[in-house]
Amino acid sequence: MSEPPSTAGAAAADALGRADLGAAEELARAALAERDALSARLTLAQALAWQGRGHEADAVLAEVDPAALAETDLIAWALPRAANQFWMLDEPERATAFLRSTRARLRSATTIDALLSTFAMNAGSPQRALELAETVLAAPDADHRAIGWAASAAALSSARMGRFAPVDRLAAQAIAAGNPGLLRFTSAFGQTTALVLDGDLDGAEKLAHALVSDAHPARAIGQLLVADVLLARGCVDEAVPLLRESAKALAVTGYSWGPLAWMLLAQALGQQGLAVDAAKALSRAESRHGLKSMLFAPELALARAWTCAARRDNVAAVAAAREAARAATRGGQSAVALRALHDAVRLGDTRATDGVLALDIDCMFARLTLDHARALKDGDEIALASVAKNYSRCGYSRAI
């Protein structure tokens, strides 16, 4: 930044890094009252945006004249403005175009590419996101902002693509970058995804629980991650109240987590057999889903599958689960396709075996799902009983 932050400005930035958004907003306003410093203005805008107050954040950022900014400050201003446009204002195309036009004015585009990586991931292109992120992380001029965005996007993209080995390392890079606080949930989702499929459900649940705090929206997103692990365990009754709270809290924000919360809630309610409630949650998920949450298109299809199952329409349920697996496969999300095929088998799909084999993922969950699919295809009751015991022994207590 061209000017060092004041004491209040530094405290505001620290609060933002901890995702204590209320404190960050209050301290940033105090800093701006002392001096109209760009650093305090950016902290205030991010604190407002992350609380779901996108129009207020946009107004704060609109008071800056980009033509008067040096390149470093231009990047610092462009990133939160684009992020706010993408998520909170629900204008992903405008945000991407804005970032690309800004990129053309810069000598170094590393930090811009880091955010474009996150945009690509959320728009349903994890392979493109990973390519951008790897370029950023290999760049000698990548600053902490670039590393934070790129490493967190790479962690989640890698996990959903079924590449589990680098996830913890990437998450550690994102955490070490320390910017910004809410990116911790993106990298953590990559970690819990990998842990769940590798069979370490206790580790996944512990990690997710550690992210649940009293601050909004950290509490809601943390609970969503806990609930996702609980659904993998088969603990639907425990997941539902967490998802209800998360979906309600996130509904007033523009986060991609919001549609995902409704998707998972619809799945859980469908598994409970609550057809009407599942349909309501599904409707809310569909109305909030768009380009910024396209990464979670397979979860939306699974929400439809379990809603159909709750209506006892098994043919439509299996068809929707197959579509979830196809959508995940088209997007390169092999790990998500595996979870979709597992649900398809649970719903009675006797043709899932080839799909599981085609994914070529070697993990605990893949082996269990393959055994399950083969036993169902063969109509082998003894084998199904054995599969159920193996699921339970590995922590997926009610996953059949």
Rank of each mutant, 00 (worst) to 15 (best):
W306N: 14
A327V: 15
A317I: 08
A285I: 08
V318Q: 12
G332K: 10
E286I: 10
S293H: 06
A303W: 02
A279C: 00
R304A: 10
A324S: 15
R330Y: 01
R330Q: 11
A325M: 05
A325D: 04
S334C: 12
E299P: 00
A335W: 10
A328S: 11
A319N: 11
A319M: 07
E323D: 12
R322L: 00
D313E: 15
A285F: 05
S287N: 14
A278Q: 07
V336H: 03
A281Y: 05
S334A: 15
F296I: 01
A275Q: 11
M294H: 15
H289L: 05
A321F: 01
A278M: 05
T329N: 03
E286W: 03
E286F: 03
V315G: 05
V336W: 11
L274I: 00
Q333R: 13
E323I: 00
D277K: 12
Q333C: 05
F296H: 11
G332E: 12
V336P: 00
A301Y: 03
R326D: 15
F296E: 10
K280P: 00
A303D: 05
R288I: 04
K280F: 03
L282H: 09
C308S: 15
A279M: 02
A281R: 07
K292G: 03
W306P: 02
V315P: 00
A316T: 02
L295D: 11
R304C: 03
T329V: 06
G331C: 03
R284M: 14
G290H: 06
A317V: 09
E286S: 11
L291S: 14
A328R: 03
V315L: 13
A316N: 06
K292W: 08
G273N: 06
G273D: 07
V318T: 10
A335I: 09
A309V: 01
D277R: 12
L274D: 14
K280L: 13
L300P: 07
E286M: 05
A278N: 10
A297M: 11
K292D: 10
E323T: 12
V318D: 02
G290R: 08
N314A: 12
L300T: 02
A305E: 09
D313W: 09
A324V: 08
A310P: 04
A297I: 06
R322I: 00
L300H: 06
T329I: 03
A275I: 09
A317P: 08
L295K: 09
K280N: 13
A320Y: 01
A297Q: 13
A319D: 14
L300N: 05
G290Y: 03
S283M: 04
K292Y: 13
A324L: 04
A281W: 07
R304V: 05
A303Q: 03
A328V: 08
R322N: 09
L302I: 04
L291P: 11
G290D: 12
C308M: 09
E286Y: 03
S287F: 02
A335S: 15
R326F: 07
S334Y: 11
A281N: 08
L274Y: 05
V276E: 15
A321Q: 06
A316S: 15
T307K: 07
A325H: 06
A335P: 09
G290F: 04
T307S: 13
G290I: 08
